[in-house]
Write a protein that binds this DNA or RNA. Structure first.
Lengths: 201, 201, 201, 201
DNA sequence: TATGAATGAGGGTTCATTCAT
DNA sequence: TATGAATGAACCCTCATTCAT
């Protein structure tokens, strides 16, 4: 028997809820946001939210997973057209080198908050850590390795370590989002220079 | 009328509560910790907690302020005996260059969490941002400036920027605490090398 | 206009839902069973259930009525072939004189639960009480009367009273279903003996 | 440090809540009664109820336990002054031989309901079954045994079986509470006569 | 007639805060 | 000053019922 609504419809609705939830979490944080607020924001009833997500926690986790996957895929695609390791790294740094006013502060905070949240939830922490390795670190690691193979990048340290340095810098940068007086553009450029200096052949 | 209990007694009790609260927050996070849990941990009654702190929020903020001040003072003192800028920076890096198992993971997470918490509370955010400038950034900035004056550190970038880089790196490092497989010691050393390379004259 | 689906089809579907509902109620009780569970058990959609029954309550009442009527009719038929009052009573007692493991515990509990449920719903209670009189008590009463007429059963008490005693014993027996260690077979026999002793001429 | 309120005070308050809960459950049944209703009935706040009972379920179970223990103790005491087995049994039967209008119908229904409730909760069912054995069945069993020793009661069946018969009759009787037209007094007397006839030496 | 997504009132439970003792 | 019982608003979640398709 044909389903009453299409699979596509459900997927879209789910995404709508997710989007609204993100807005709310960005505004007030996960714990402080109530399900009612997500209802108000999304125009979806409480009951409906629970037909799409089994709990507020699950909604949160799902939201973060979607976000991560989406951003990773977006980046992956964009990098494909690029050639040298430094072109690729340039692209990655460029993501963060933008007008402060255009940075979605709330969303970044939600992401950081989620990192801390998972740190207290061992089950998901394990999964998330693995995702981090696979998608984030490994991804940059491959770029570095390629650069090392081509002789663009030195081999003083392993590709793994360099990749970790990259992300450590980025995370350090992101957490400064909370300080209105942090000189974002200068900082990202300074750190990019520092990193390049360190790794260039 | 003489006070019935000494100012000292009150200060000690306050500190006791603060210590217990830190333990609880480290275990479960601020929002998830209940006042009852802090009572249990500290052996202090609910009523008492509210005579020392006007709200759970205030307790949280006070705790973080105490912590920051204490750690700053401790560091300040230790640095006094040191001479060159690099000796001082060495000391600062050494704080984070330790056995993973000895790192008070929970406490670090509490601190990061607090940063995010404040980002949604403009009143305290302003104060905290100022404190950060005064005590944290400026402090390293002075070290750098001194190094620049003495010719140990280059002047390619301003002392301010270098100081911010230092803290950005440290924060990026700290947030990795949540990943059990992060190679802490190698990373701190690699990043120290990178930073020194960048700033040395 | 001819009906699109036969009356028979509808009756069958209704019965299917009723059967599934009984299974669910037997497992978890009326209040605790959700309409969704009945859907799952029966494979019938929620909307359908509501086209056959106007509410969960109505479904419950209907189920119990069906059950009662069915069991009464079954018994009536079986008794027709029997002659003496004691043969008939023997048959009735035999219904309960069986292997504990074959007793549909859950269903019996549903029935008892329903009795209590009705006790709080005066409208249906009146109807049910009447049904009890007409079908259950009167039925045994007739058997007793017949026995009294034939001289098999004494007239120390009225047929009505004896009939009530019979059912009181049976209900008392049924409620013990909840105790796993109740010696069912011995008990039913003992009580049968006691009853016979009391009523025999 | 002395507790702020006496142990006695707490016990009394607990009992107050229990009493109110009984009234509510008697009126509407366990599942249908809301905690808010118990609050209204008792004049106690919702929060308070949860400082005395960890859940609605626990409140229910506790209520039933209290009730059982109280009634058992009351009966035990009363029986102490009596001599022969039949005097004691008379006393027990007399409990149920009263004016219908004075019978606390609701409370009896709550008790029966609880029996069914426990039948679906194996953990408490085990405990309750044991209690039943120890306090209820054994109690009558001892009376019967004594009667058998003294030659007042025959030994055609075991004291255990006779005791079970007694309670089966009583439970069968109690469940008729729901029928307004059940002739309670005549019935209890008839059944008493039947039982005595069966057991007397 | 059949479906199951949508609804939202209402349920049990928690917890920061107050206040009489 | 210390206590912890009392409070009740607010939370997450459930589920009988409806209704567009």
């Amino acid at each position: 028997m044909a389903p009453i609504v299409s699979r596509d419809y459900k997927e879209r609705k789910k995404q709508e809820i997710l989007d609204s939830a993100l807005k709310c979490f960005a505004r007030k944080g996960f714990e402080t946001t109530t399900v009612d607020e997500i209802c108000r924001e999304s125009g979806v009833s409480k009951g409906s939210i629970y037909t799409y997500f089994s709990s507020k926690d699950e909604l949160y986790i799902e939201l973060m997973r979607h976000q991560t996957v989406a951003s990773i895929n977006g980046i992956k695609e964009a990098l494909e057209g690029l050639n040298t390791a430094f072109d690729k790294l340039d692209f990655l740094f460029a993501i963060y080198d933008q007008d402060f006013s255009r940075i979605p502060t709330g969303e970044i905070i939600v992401n950081l908050e989620f990192k801390l949240y998972t740190s207290r939830h061992n089950e998901i922490n394990a999964i998330l850590s693995k995702m981090r390795q696979e998608y984030t670190v490994n991804h940059v690691k491959e770029i570095i390795e390629e650069g090392q193979r081509k002789g663009e990048i030195n081999q003083n340290s392993s590709a793994q370590i360099y990749a970790e340095v990259f992300w450590t810098i980025i995370h350090g940068f992101l957490i400064q989002i909370i300080h209105k007086d942090y000189p974002f553009r200068e900082m990202i450029q300074e750190m990019k220079a520092m990193f390049y200096e360190r790794i260039k052949a």
